[in-house]
Amino acid sequence: MSETVNIDMVADGMTTTEQAGRTRLGQSVAAPSGSRWGAIAGKVLIALFVVVMVIFILGPLLWLAIHAFAGTWTYPNLMPDSWTLRWWQTVFSDSSLGIAVQNSLVISPLVVLFSAVICLPAAYAFARFEFFARRTFLIGLFATNAFPKMGLFATLASLFYALNLMNTVVGIIIVQILGTIVFMTWIPAAAFAAVPRSLEEAARDAGASRIRVFFSITLRMAMPGILVAAVMAFLASFDEAQGTYLVGAPDYFTMPTEMYTLVLNYPKQVAAVFSILLSIPSVVLMLVARKHIMGGQLAEGFQIR
């Protein structure tokens, strides 16, 4: 479990550190050139900061990577005593692990899809219409995040028993959707709101029906924001363990819930291998999203004053 959390931080942390590093550099350049020592000291500080951040972010990953290939690794030694691929073999030959991977790769996309179907219309409504208690509803979406998850899941479980949703895929999907609603509504709502109305009006003026305007202009322009939300929802669903375990176990295991079993039943090297596998989709998604979302051409061309 702790590994999962670490990987999350890695994935999110990459870009923030990069940005932080850049702004810091910019500031030192802007500083008066009169004090050369000050500038050098600034650069040293920045270098130190970068090194610390790199250790902080890459350290756990490195630790995981070494563990995944380590035979045994005892305390005073800096490096493992022996290297092996045995743990990878264990993971790939265990059929229950394969099923967990399969479950995760089926459930998470479904969660993103249903979450989008439910939340995007709501996001559009929040962005474009003024209705009764609009702000209350918008803030109310945080309710699921405002209380300890376990408490929520405990009450949810009794409801699920009554509705025969316990130990079902539908139940797992519902539990995971709960965790995605906030991203899937707030981020797209901001993206929809950022589409200038005059662009929609221009399309209507050109002869487009309201539905056509939505698909050709509004949705198209809000897409980067929606993609970010979808990526975050996917990761949230992919990493969700508590609710999934409660609803799914013992019939359905996803990758994170399978981790519980692994940590309990196998040496920690297997858990290391598994958490590396678990991080692959996150990293791939982040890289893809980065390319698409930060492409920049969509942010250009606004003449809004």
Binding site: P196, S198, L199, E201, A202, A203, R204, D205, A206, G207, A208, S209, S216, I217, R220, M221, Q297, L298, A299, E300, G301, F302, Q303, I304, R305
Partner: peptide, 28 residues
């Protein structure tokens, strides 16, 4: 607006940033 025989030039131009100049003009 979509069914009126009038065409408007907006104060902020309201060009669609995700389309090329050609596509902007071709859209109507």
């Amino acid at each position: 607006a979509e069914r009126r025989p009038s065409a408007m030039v907006f104060q902020n131009y309201a060009l669609w940033p995700h389309m090329t100049v050609f596509k902007n003009v071709a859209f109507p």
